[in-house]
Design a protein around this nucleic acid. Structure first.
Length: 299
DNA sequence: CAAAGTCCCTGGGGGC
DNA sequence: TGCCCCCAGGGACTTT
């Protein structure tokens, strides 16, 4: 599930290829993603050049020299696949025909599509950038640069957890009258942007705070632990993704998300690492979502 | 207004 | 082996 570290890892993986690349042709094979793909997406991208690739929260922002921004969310299962004309790799399990190298014209390689390849961008020189998303929880929209900050997708997002505005004082202000559990508080993108279920569980474990605690009941001391816990968990996950990036960009060209070794997430019934707890890691449901925690270490 | 619930979607895994 | 059911999750939307 792509949360901030996975999106950042994808960004770093794509950046060398995308920066300065001219878009030769765009094919929208399915427009019914989480939100409808912008109807004029192909027209506005074709002939433009990517000038920057940035991340905000879990969004990727591809800027172009036409003052447009391609805003992408990977949802649950969204991936980018990068095909290089020189590599010509193929996935024998899922692809019936070899990937077609560029050079045979826009839209070439009709037999080379994977299932769930929804948007195909042919780039110059010699690359093909494919957005693949089985569950179609992702989105792809094009906006004017000037409209970005007021767009409904971004306008209510809280600070970047690895940026200067994410402080214990900020959280204290957010949480002073908030009675919902801290698990929900940290998943709320208005308070801090980019955390999902996995990294909220991991951060609360590291900070020693039970996910059931009310936001407004956290002490200053706990908030002072929570902020660096979040920052450390994210930084380590990004570093782990980054250090394995060359493996992570597989021969097939697929940019998946790095599988991190989690302390609590998905480890119900196991002993938590470095803890002598006898209770083992518990799984509970909070507002329809699984929380994993150690009842001894997290109070 | 806050908080909790619902829905979208598909692949994968467990149970029988 | 095959089939069915449930689960995973972000975020917009609906209900309480």
């Amino acid at each position: 599930m792509p949360e901030l570290p996975e999106v950042e890892t994808v960004r770093r993986g794509l950046e060398p290829t995308v920066l300065g690349a001219k878009i030769r042709h765009v094919t929208v094979r399915r427009a019914d993603l989480r939100f409808p793909v912008s109807p004029d997406l192909g027209q506005r991208l074709t002939g433009a050049t990517f000038t920057a690739l940035e991340r905000r929260s879990k969004y990727l922002l591809f800027s172009t020299d036409r003052a447009d921004v391609l805003l992408v969310h990977l949802g649950m299962s969204g991936r980018f696949v990068l095909n290089s004309a020189t590599e010509g790799a193929l996935d024998p399990q899922t692809r019936s025909a070899p990937k077609t190298a560029l050079g045979s014209g826009p839209g070439a390689g009709l037999g080379g599509h994977l299932k769930h390849d929804h948007i195909v961008m042919d780039l110059e020189p010699g690359h093909r950038l494919v957005y693949n998303d089985p569950r179609r929880f992702g989105s792809m929209e094009i906006l004017e640069q000037t409209a970005l900050s007021s767009s409904p997708r971004l306008k209510d997002l809280g600070p970047e957890p690895l940026g200067p505005d994410f402080t214990q004082q900020h959280l204290k202000t957010c949480f002073v009258k908030k009675r919902s559990p801290i698990k929900a508080g940290l998943l709320d993108q208005r308070h801090v942007a980019g955390l999902g279920n996995i990294y909220v569980c991991e951060s609360l474990y590291r900070a020693g705070i039970a996910p059931t605690r009310a936001c407004c009941d956290l002490t200053d001391q706990e908030l002072n632990r929570l902020v660096p816990a979040i920052q450390e968990v994210l930084t380590e996950a990004i570093a782990a993704g980054g250090s394995s990036l060359k493996d992570y960009v597989q021969a097939s060209g697929e940019l998946g998300y790095f599988q991190h070794r989690f302390a609590v997430y998905g480890r119900e019934g196991q002993a938590c690492p470095g803890c002598d707890c006898d209770k083992r890691i518990q799984k509970i449901t909070q507002s329809g979502r699984s929380s994993f925690y150690c009842p001894k270490k997290q109070i």
